[in-house]
Computed example of a mutant assay.
Amino acid sequence: MDRIKNAKWRTPIYHFAGACLTLALGLLGWLYLPVQTLAQDKPMVLMALVLGLLLIGPTIGYWAARGVQRDVDKLHLAIKQAVKGNLSERIPLSGNGGFDAIYQDFNEMSESLEGRIKLLRKLGEENVMLQAQSNEAAVLEERKRLARDLHDTVSQQLFAIHMSASSLEKLLDARPEMVKTVVEQLVTMSQHAQKQMRSLIAQLRPLELEGKTLHGALDQWFPVYCSQNGLQGKLDVRLDDRLSDAIEHQLFLIIQEAMANVVKHARANHVMLLLHDGGRQIVLQIDDNGIGFEPGGAQRSSYGLSTMKERAQRLGGDAEVRSLVGKGTTVKISIPKFSS
């Protein structure tokens, strides 16, 4: 606390020192200038003392205030870095500054927060993987159900189509008037089978990350998805290290949701996906050139920000959506990195 208190006295002390210096210079002038000169130029001497007070004092005060401002700027910059998620930021101690105690408290706070977020991220990753295992079991059960449905619907339809088609050759010779009816039945059954097959396929969710890295999955998935939805896509992935399975899983889900939002809401024809390792953060950014929307408007919720934000927060990160009407939309996800 003594050092903190010293900071508020720094500027007044420098001002006082400036005043003392001015008076000292005036006194020296009074002592060493000839008496005759002082008697003749007394107004000039007084003016010189006043100018000295006006110039020397503020100059020293400004110089002192610059030091205080420099200390405040260090703290402000460190706080801004912490707000952005760079919790590894530390302020070096000067050893003789009035702000050292504050810097020390900030460093301890950042270290404590970093440790807690590491723990939360670890728990989040474990939860994601447990959820993924649970989902995998659910997928296996769903596949069994789909197999039963295929057997009970499409498989039987195909068998009926095969039997009807097999009878056509005999009908052409024996009862040609029945051929048209059978063909119409074949068309109806094939359409029904096709509709049932599409319904079953729509229920399947392909595991795009299975056996692949996130980079590899995006290289394969992103251009196909853009092509299928009439988008010109640009993919830029720059990752220095392999991410954990939990982070890759969550980021891929976020990307799928964000891209689905572009197709459903943006009316865009161009989209850019950036995934970069920023050293202290993993940054995912998706930009489209669509119609955009007013910040805070109803369409903001349509972009599924809450879901993406929740997924990012599970890993200690954050999500934001920036948009302007007619200027497109940007989805940005930031996930902090920690040294192992």
Rank of each mutant, 00 (worst) to 15 (best):
Phe222Ser: 07
His192Phe: 06
Asp318Met: 09
Leu123Arg: 14
Lys180Val: 02
Arg198Thr: 11
Leu214Ile: 13
Gln285Ala: 07
Ala132Gly: 02
Thr329Tyr: 00
Met163Glu: 14
Leu231His: 04
Gln131Val: 08
Ala246Gln: 07
Thr153Ile: 04
Arg145Trp: 01
Ile282Val: 06
Leu239Asp: 12
Val179Leu: 01
Val68Met: 11
Arg70Asp: 14
Ile102Glu: 05
Thr59Cys: 09
Phe106Ser: 02
Gly57Ala: 04
Leu172Phe: 14
Leu186Glu: 03
Leu324Asp: 15
Lys170Thr: 15
Lys195Phe: 09
Ala165Met: 09
Asp277Gln: 01
Pro12Ala: 09
Leu315Gly: 05
Thr22Trp: 05
Asp287Phe: 07
Ile247Glu: 14
Ala268Pro: 04
Gly124Phe: 00
Gly98Asp: 15
Cys226Asp: 04
Lys332Glu: 08
Ile282Asn: 01
Ala312Val: 10
Ile254Glu: 01
Val179Trp: 00
Ile13Gly: 08
Pro92Phe: 13
Leu21Asp: 03
Gly18Asp: 00
Pro206Ala: 13
His270Trp: 05
Phe159Glu: 05
Arg116Trp: 09
Leu123Ser: 14
Ile56Cys: 02
Leu119Cys: 06
Glu248Tyr: 01
Ile79Cys: 08
Leu119Ser: 15
Phe159Ser: 03
Leu31Asp: 03
Ala24Ser: 12
Cys20Ser: 13
Ala137Pro: 01
Gln156Asn: 03
Ala266Ser: 15
Glu169Cys: 06
Tyr62Gly: 03
Leu253Pro: 00
His15Arg: 12
Arg242Cys: 02
Phe99Asn: 04
Asp41Asn: 11
Ser190Gln: 07
Arg238Ser: 14
Met178Asp: 12
Phe16Gly: 13
Arg116Thr: 12
Lys144His: 04
Tyr225Arg: 12
Asn269Phe: 02
Gly297Met: 05
Lys8Ile: 07
Leu275Gly: 09
Val35Met: 05
Ala312Glu: 03
Leu214Asp: 09
Gln250Ile: 15
Gly297Asp: 11
Leu239Asn: 06
Lys170Phe: 09
Ile13Trp: 10
Ser155Trp: 06
Val263Pro: 13
Glu208Trp: 10
Gly57Asp: 12
Asp149Gly: 01
Gly279Pro: 03
His215Phe: 07
Leu231Tyr: 00
His151Gln: 05
Tyr303Leu: 15
Trp30Thr: 12
Ala260His: 12
Ser323Gly: 01
Gly233Cys: 10
Thr181Ile: 02
Asn107Tyr: 03
Pro92Gly: 11
Val283Thr: 11
Ile247Asn: 09
Glu108Cys: 01
Leu235Ser: 07
Arg143Met: 07
Ala64Phe: 02
Arg116Val: 11
Phe99Lys: 02
Trp63Ser: 04
